[in-house]
Structures are given as structure tokens and as C-alpha cells.
Design a protein around this nucleic acid. Structure first.
Lengths: 330, 330
DNA sequence: CGCGAGGATGAGTAATTGCCCATGAGCAAA
DNA sequence: TTTGCTCATGGGCAATTACTCATCCTCGCG
């Protein structure tokens, strides 16, 4: 009698433990049958002599206990992981990472296609949207990848002017390239990118046509902007908007990047300086109420991209592995 | 014109290829979102700008193309893989593999519990079944693991006699142990295991009680039998059914194992010899119409188990990793 | 010995997924 | 150009899965 009673009692905690472990064993079994052998939960239930609900619980237990490991055997797996990590770390709405592909010579391989696909996704939406575009070589390359789309319900508006300092049309104003491929109403900004003074900007912005375009851009549902780095071979210098000494001065004051000409420091704050006073671009649309996707990749843009992200100049990002890894370490 | 026409033509296969590859990329993306990120196919569809059905197709494509690899992080994963492989290789109905666990001293650790669980599964079925049991130490250990079950609809019948050569009750006749735990109608076989001659067997089998029990055993829905190895420390000798010289003679004639006393060769064929003529056990129930589960593990039983499997003496197996690996190599 | 907390269970139901089919686009051969 | 073929697409529906809730059981505690 003593032994009989003592046995079960002593065994109690052991039973507890072995029951927990047995439950995990069962969960593993069920998970294996479900994920590896491809059985249905009904089959598992009858095979294990339990109810379908219990089988379901075991399967989800196996998942919850991380007994089931899933991995993706494909080059983009790493990109997707990186994208998700970056999105979480910086609280971005969406992030896309493309392979860095150091072998390819062209600077915009991959990212242009990815950005084009994203633009296309928005343009395929049935409900009318306002899509705003900034400027930049990467963005231009993306737009050049767009297939012919007809979407007469959408409106496409440019955030930046289309006239360079020398009076010619700015090549990298992408809205005209876009108009070639996309059948939609386009609204360019009939302004220089940089004007000579804050006062001139006021005057120009007061024009009816300009004002309505700027107002429309503020209503954008989604915005695509290039992220530019500063430097004497950065786009602002290359395209003749700034002279070398202006650039040097700008960089001394802490500027690390620009979006649509708006220059910001390493924390993504727009600088309060003469250059930004002369930028004639429309303000970047709300990052609270709309999606603003920055596009950029490569070592030279790393600091600019990080700044744009932490300063919430953008809430979406399309970049490459290299930059994504930098953003995770930074 | 020539260039214009040639371009697209030359580009054709390239476009084809890149489209295939792009489709795989999409499949990988969808698969990742589904399996790793845990999104629903609806979410994936709207995120990728496609219909739900297309998302579903991409996900299943990812699986079909083996982009998604699932593995189970649990000790029994290997057992399940082995079991499945053995089941497929030998066309068995069901196979269960338990860890070999070389550290444990007791020979029946693991397999007894597994067999008990399997017996319990059958006994829990609501529809009335006939469950037949053979003999053997392993089976006895399994039955001793059974909890108290009440299943008055089921019938449990023994395939083997319960009297040893010296006239005492055979300890390893498991039906009495089973009766202790399981509330069901039990039908022991009131016979010796081995009789002195084929004629005596005829006489005994002609008895009404014996005949009806044997007939019932032929109707068994499921049968659990131990698989015994031959040898001077095999169960037939240990329990005094055979003398050493009889055993040596048997092994010389090619016998490698026994089930319920029925001795078979390395291909699982029942031997046509004096011993089998004296076995008083009921025939093993049909492997076509019912489930006959053999139980056994360990190096010493390997050959016997392989023979039982290839000779279709059984169509179900509960064994350990060691034997399963041997069966896969053999 | 009764009582409440915690956990497992199964029923029912909502959500999700898998599959079939009609449709139409794209392409090659006639 | 027409015809026939292939294949991707989305609608619709059935199967499968996930979740919620009420209930039951067990265990610990007073």
C-alpha cells in the first residue's frame, strides 16, 4: 500500500515533466506529419488517436515552440530578411532590398527594376491615386523600366522643377519619362529647381498654376523620391545646381544628403541655410498620411539614406543589401 | 528596321528566361511572406499587387520548386524520417521508430511505450475490433505500459498457447497482463506453445473452444506480435521451448527468426521443418486484410526483423533507429 | 471536503486555403 | 489572317484550418 501510494506521488513531478516533454514530442510528431509529410490535420488526428482540434493545437504548438524551422532556398531570401529587419528597426512602412550584385557595372541594376515594379503596383490600383515623383538618376532609371500602362484615373505630379540653372530642361526630372510610358494626367512643375532667392521662390509659388500643382502634391497618396548624397560628384554638383565651393560650405555645415534638393544633416533634419531657402521644390508629402518611398543604394549614399530614414524624411525605402546591412549596424 | 526587328527577336529567349526567373523570384517572395513572415495569402496578394489566386499559385510554386525547406528541430525528427523511409522502402502500412538511446540499460526503453501508445490508439476506437496479440518480452513490456482502459466492445485474442513445456503458465503470454489493464473480453489459447507432434496439434486444434478462438484470431483487425531472434540466448531457448541442439539444427537449416513460434528464414519464408509442424499457435492473421504490427529492436533482432518485413510476415513495424538504419541499408 | 484557478477539450463558426473551370491573351502553324 | 493550342488569370466553391467559447477535469488551497 505504501509503495503503491508512494509510487504515484513520487512519480508526480516526473510525470509532469515527462508529460510536458511527451506533449512536445507529440507536437513535433504532428508538426512533422503536417509540414514534412504533408498530411492534413484530420489525418494526423486519426493517426495519433486524438481529435482534430487537438491535432491543430499540436501543430501550432510545434510552430510556437520553434520546433518547425522554415527557410527559403533562394538568393532573395537574405534580401527579404534584411528588408524586414530594417523595416522593424526604423519603423518604416515598407522596405525592399535588392541584391548588391557587385559584379554588375551599372550602378542601378536591380534597384531600378524593383522600384519600377513598386511604381507599377501603385499604378495598377483601381481607385484613383495621386502619385508624386521627385528626381534623381536612380528614379529616372526606374521610370525607364516601366512598361506601357494606361491609368487615366491616376494623376502624377512632380515635386521638383524641370529647369536647370542654364535654362535647359533638367534631364533627370523624371515626370516626362514617366509620361512616355504611362497614360495618365501628368503635372510637371514649371519652375527651376533652384531659384536665386527666397523672395523669388515666394513669387513663383504664388502663381496659380504652380500653387495648384503644389497643393496637389500635398495630396499625394504615394511619393517616389531619389535620395542624393552630397559631395563634389553628387548630383547637385554634377547637374550644375551648386558650385564646388557652395557644396563644400554646405558639407561643412553638416549636410549629408538631399531629397528633391532639400538638404538635410546626418539626423535627417532639413538645414536652415541659404540653399534650402532657394529650393523651389514642393515640400515632401506627409509621412504621416501617405507613403513616401526613398530610392537609393551604394556606399556613397549610405549616410544620406540613414539620415533620411532616421529623420523621417521618408517612410519607405528601396535599397540594396549593402545599405541595408549598414542601416542595421548603424 | 533590321536592328529594330532583330532586337526583340534576339531578346525573346532572354525575356523568356528572365520572366521565368522573375516568376521564381516572386514565388520566393510569396513563399517567404507566407511561411516566414506568416502573412495570409490575401495580404501577400495586395502587397504584391496580384490576385489572391495568383499569390496562392506563387506560394505553391515555391513549395513545388523546393524553394521552401522545412525541417523539424526535435530529437524525434530523425526517427520520423527513418520511419517514413522504411515504410516506403518495404511497402509497410505503418512504421514507428523510437530512439535507440544506447545509454539506457533496459532493453525495452522507448519501444514499449511506443507500442503501448499504438495499442491504446486501437483500443480507443469506438467501433468494435478484434485485437490479436502474439508473445514476447518486448510485447509484454508494452502491455505493462497500458493504462486502465475500458472497452467492452473490443475482443482481445491470443495467437499463442499459454502453457510451457514444463506445464507451467508461460510468463510471456501477454494476454493475461493485458487483461489486468484492459476491460474487454479476452480469449487466451488453452494450448501449449509447442506440442510433441503434428498429429497432436491436429487433435488439439479440433477442439471446439480452440477452433473458435483460432477462427476469431483470423478475423483480427489488428495484431501485435513480438519478433524473436534465434540463437542459444533467443527466447525459444531461454523459455525452454527448444534445446540447444534443436536450436543449432534450426539455425543450420537457415532459420533467422520467429513470430509466435513460427520460424522463418532470412527471406521471411516459414520453414518446412519439424519445429513449425509442432507450433500450436494460430496462424498470423492476414497481412492483406488486416494490420499486423511487429515489435522488436536491437542488433540481435536485425536479421529476424528484416526477414519478417521482406517476407511479409508483418505489414507494420515498431522498432528503433539502429534497426531502421539497418533496414534502409540492407 | 468544498471551492476556485488554470488548463485541456470538443463544438461551433469564421477565416483561410486549394482546386476546378470558364475566359481571354499570346503565339505558332496553316 | 485564321485557326488551334497553351497558359495565366480570376471567380466561385469546397475543403481545410484557426479561433472562440462553454464545459469539464485536475489540482492546489482553505
Amino acid at each position: 500500500m505504501f509503495a503503491g501510494e508512494g509510487g504515484p506521488r513520487d512519480g508526480h513531478s516526473m510525470v509532469k515533466r515527462s508529460e510536458t516533454s511527451a506533449r512536445l514530442d507529440d507536437a513535433a510528431r504532428a508538426g512533422w506529419l503536417y509540414y514534412v509529410a504533408g498530411r492534413t490535420q484530420d489525418e494526423i488526428a486519426s493517426a495519433m488517436g486524438i481529435s482534430r482540434q487537438s491535432a491543430q493545437r499540436l501543430v501550432s504548438l510545434a510552430v510556437a515552440e520553434r520546433l518547425i524551422k522554415v527557410r527559403l532556398d533562394h538568393p532573395i531570401a537574405a534580401c527579404l530578411e534584411l528588408a524586414d529587419a530594417v523595416r522593424k528597426k526604423y519603423g518604416l512602412r515598407q522596405v525592399e532590398v535588392v541584391p548588391s550584385d557587385p559584379g554588375a557595372g551599372v550602378a542601378t541594376v536591380g534597384i531600378a527594376e524593383a522600384a519600377a515594379a513598386e511604381i507599377e503596383r501603385w499604378l495598377k490600383k483601381p481607385d484613383p491615386i495621386v502619385l508624386a515623383v521627385g528626381t534623381g538618376r536612380t528614379l529616372k532609371a526606374a521610370v525607364d523600366q516601366l512598361p506601357a500602362i494606361e491609368c487615366i484615373n491616376h494623376r502624377i505630379v512632380s515635386l521638383t522643377g524641370n529647369i536647370t540653372p542654364d535654362g535647359s530642361a533638367a534631364y533627370y526630372n523624371v515626370i516626362f519619362s514617366m509620361a512616355d510610358a504611362v497614360k495618365a494626367r501628368h503635372f510637371p512643375m514649371p519652375l527651376p529647381v533652384l531659384v536665386t532667392s527666397a523672395e523669388e521662390r515666394e513669387t513663383l509659388h504664388a502663381q496659380q498654376l504652380v500653387r495648384s500643382t503644389i497643393e496637389m502634391s500635398a495630396q499625394a497618396n504615394v511619393t517616389f523620391v531619389g535620395i542624393g548624397e552630397l559631395g563634389i560628384d553628387g548630383p547637385l554638383c554634377l547637374d550644375g545646381f551648386l558650385e564646388k565651393d557652395e557644396m563644400m560650405e554646405l558639407m561643412r555645415s553638416g549636410a549629408v544628403g538631399e531629397i528633391c534638393g532639400w538638404v538635410f544633416d546626418s539626423e535627417g533634419r532639413l538645414l536652415d541655410n541659404p540653399i534650402n531657402e532657394r529650393v523651389a521644390s514642393a515640400p515632401i508629402p506627409s509621412r504621416e498620411a501617405s507613403v513616401v518611398i526613398g530610392i537609393g543604394k551604394g556606399k556613397r549614399k549610405m549616410k544620406a539614406i540613414r539620415a533620411a530614414v532616421v529623420g523621417h524624411q521618408i517612410n519607405g525605402l528601396i535599397t540594396d543589401e549593402e545599405v541595408a546591412e549598414y542601416l542595421l549596424k548603424a
